[in-house]
């Protein structure tokens, strides 16, 4: 399991290699989610704030719970913080499992829980100088609730 919080960009290929190595010869699938800063409407940058004393513990708890639930062989969550330009990668989630179904569902669960159970807040910075905090969407809570059996 690898859980990281960082300012700088991550190397997707190196992370996929690492989780596949962690999973070993029993692995049959690695699934991935890569979140990007979506542009448009004059957006210049996205700033990610978090709760430093809490964030890593929450990410670790999500990785552990999902690993147990889907019997993962390897698992990675890397979330960036700070100010990121349009198109920049924000978050990487990887899940290695024996079969594709478990790896795909594990990735979807992790990203849903990241959106609703970890202390991050996004602020949009626009070309005209406006700064707007992103509001949580009810759809995110509903997506996360799907996985709470």
């Amino acid at each position: 399991m690898r859980v990281v919080l960082q300012d700088e960009a991550f190397d997707v290929a190196a992370e996929v290699d690492a989780v596949a190595r962690e999973a070993g010869v029993e692995a049959g699938a690695v699934a991935m989610f890569l979140g990007l800063v979506r542009g448009g409407d004059g957006l210049r940058a996205l700033t990610l704030e978090h709760y430093p004393r809490m964030t890593l513990a929450r990410l670790s708890a999500i990785a552990e719970e999902v690993s147990a639930r889907y019997d993962l062989l390897g698992c990675t969550i890397i979330h960036r913080v700070g100010t990121l330009g349009v198109g920049a990668p924000i978050v990487l989630v990887l899940a290695a499992a024996r079969h594709r179904g478990a790896s795909l569902e594990a990735v979807e669960t992790m990203i849903d829980w990241l959106k609703t159970r970890s202390p991050f807040w996004k602020r949009e910075d626009y070309d005209d100088g406006r700064q707007v905090w992103v509001e949580a969407r009810a759809a995110d809570d509903a997506a996360a609730a799907r996985w709470d059996l």
């Binding site: 709760y51 924000i90 959106k115 996004k122 905090w133 949580a136």
Partner: peptide
């Protein structure tokens, strides 16, 4: 205790 108040989270 440390008590934090914040708006609903929007990470991921």
């Amino acid at each position: 205790d440390e008590v934090a108040f914040f708006p609903p989270v929007t990470g991921g």
